[in-house]
Structures are given as structure tokens and as C-alpha cells.
């Protein structure tokens, strides 16, 4: 895999929309061409090279292209959005829409990610080593079709509304989550489709699986406030990430006549 390194320069800006930082956009181009790819600062278009020093090698196909962002970019949006193959590694923080609408490839963020990360993801793998903001793996605003596939792993904590309208794929959170995890989960999928899954190792303040109609949510920590629309339905021993745990099964959300399953560690 060829590596292309973007090092943030010491230039001030308000906020950048850099949907060009994806393997698909850079592959097959020369370094000069890459430096001239447009990024948006509000209503102004700038070349990418104004904000990043670009070094390394470029591959011919997106699959063989790796991009390394060597530093913190907490105000650069759309990193790795809509990518289909290849890999992106960010050594610091990223802003909103990291890995949004992603179809394939891998993203790894060593710092924190802001809101709307990986929304409407369809495939690929994302690993956030820090925390992520709100609406991770959710649907785009106003759409009722959320994440369809792929795998998200969050080593830190997640914000509110994780996996809203989730239709497939898997999200694992090693830390805690905000309210509304898995809200509207399973809307729009049939009985035979593979079920979406959320695994929460930490705690949740509540509203887990609200409005949920299908899918599985596993909570290994505690839920502070249980949704009234769930009713207990026995216990089961399951293996999650190699560890056997006994779960209480709850069905719901009865407010929506849902058939989702919530597994809470007893």
C-alpha cells in the first residue's frame, strides 16, 4: 500500500470542508494535482496545499492508497467521506462527517471525532480510538434509512443518538454512550434481513432502543433509566467478544409495537 502523508500547516482558517481527503479522490494523481484539489472554507475555495504539506507516494487504484493525516485537524470536515476503498489514518482529532456515506475501506482515528461520524455508512471498517460526537452511525437528517452495513468500533465514549435508524452492520462502543442509542433501530427492514447490532460495554443514561422495531442491542454496563416500553422476557447466556455473560432479555419498544431485543447484563 502506498502512503500519502498530509501534514497540517500553520495556517488559520475557520472551518474546512475537505471531501477530497479520500483514497478515491487522490489515487492516480500527481502530488501537484493533489495540492490543487479544492477545499472549501465557507464560501471560499482554496487548494488543499494551502493547509497541508503533501508528501509520499500515490497509488494508481484506491485500494492501494493509504492517507495519513499527521496531526490534529479538529476543524476539517468530511475526511474519508464517501470513500470506497483504501485506508485513512488520522493521528489526531477530526471534525464532523468523518467516514460519512462510506462504502468500503478502512478509517482509523487516533484522536476524537466530532458529530455525524460514519452516518449512513454502507460498508468498510472504522476504528475511533478516542471519543466520538453525536449521531455516530446515524441517518442523514430527515432520512429514515440509517447505517446499512460495515463495522464501527469506538474505544472511547459515544455521544447521543448512536446508530439512529440503523438497518444493518455493527457498532461496538467500549466506553459509555449518551441517550438514544439505537433509536428507531430496524425501521424499514424485513423479518428475513440480517439484524443490526449495537454492543455497549459501558453505561447508558437511558432511552436505549427507543422506537426500536427490530435489531439487537447488548448493554454490558448499566442503564440508568429504562424505557417504559420494554418488557422482560427471560434470561440467556451469551458470548460477547469472547466473554460469557448472562443477559436479561427485554422486548420492545411496545410504544411502536416493535420486535426488537435489548440484552442487559444481569
Amino acid at each position: 500500500m502506498e502512503r500519502l502523508t498530509l501534514t497540517p500547516r500553520d495556517v488559520e482558517y475557520l472551518v474546512l470542508e475537505a471531501s477530497v481527503i479520500t483514497p478515491d479522490a487522490v489515487c492516480g494523481k500527481t502530488l501537484e494535482e493533489i495540492a490543487e484539489l479544492p477545499v472549501l472554507e465557507g464560501n471560499t475555495k482554496w487548494p488543499l496545499g494551502r493547509f497541508f504539506t503533501i508528501t509520499g507516494k500515490v497509488a494508481d487504484a484506491a485500494e492501494d492508497q493509504g492517507i495519513i493525516i499527521d496531526g490534529d485537524v479538529p476543524r476539517v470536515k468530511y475526511i474519508g467521506s464517501k470513500m470506497t476503498a483504501g485506508a485513512v489514518l488520522c493521528k489526531g482529532d477530526v471534525d464532523m462527517y468523518c467516514g460519512a456515506w462510506m462504502k468500503g475501506g478502512r478509517i482509523r482515528v487516533k484522536g476524537n471525532a466530532d458529530a455525524f461520524a460514519a452516518i449512513q455508512m454502507e460498508g468498510g471498517d472504522i476504528l475511533f480510538e478516542g471519543n466520538v460526537g453525536d449521531y455516530c452511525g446515524a441517518s442523514y437528517r430527515g432520512d429514515w434509512r440509517g447505517m446499512k452495513g460495515g463495522n464501527i468500533v469506538i474505544n472511547g465514549n459515544a455521544g447521543v443518538t448512536l446508530g439512529e435508524y440503523m438497518m444493518g452492520g455493527k457498532i461496538t462502543v467500549k466506553g459509555n454512550v449518551g441517550i438514544n442509542a439505537g433509536i428507531h433501530m430496524g425501521k424499514g427492514i424485513g423479518a428475513k434481513d440480517p439484524l443490526p447490532t449495537i454492543i455497549i460495554h459501558g453505561d447508558s443514561p437511558g432511552r436505549v432502543g427507543a422506537f426500536m422495531t427490530r435489531g439487537n442491542i447488548y448493554v454490558l454496563g448499566t442503564i440508568e433509566v429504562m424505557m417504559p416500553g420494554f418488557s422482560p422476557d427471560g434470561t440467556e447466556e451469551l458470548e460477547i467478544d469472547g466473554v460469557k455473560t448472562t443477559f436479561q432479555i427485554l422486548n420492545g419498544d411496545h410504544g411502536e409495537k416493535g420486535r426488537g431485543k435489548l440484552f442487559v447484563r444481569t
Binding site: 417504559p228 418488557s231 409495537k257
Partner: peptide
């Protein structure tokens, strides 16, 4: 939670 409980009752279930 209160709204959800009302809906659960209207749907014929018991709130948690």
C-alpha cells in the same frame, strides 16, 4: 419516558 409509557398503555402493554 412518560410519553412512551402512555403509548405502551394505549397499545395494550404494561409500562416497565
Amino acid at each position: 419516558e412518560v410519553l412512551n409509557a402512555l403509548m405502551t398503555i394505549l397499545n395494550g402493554f404494561e409500562p416497565h
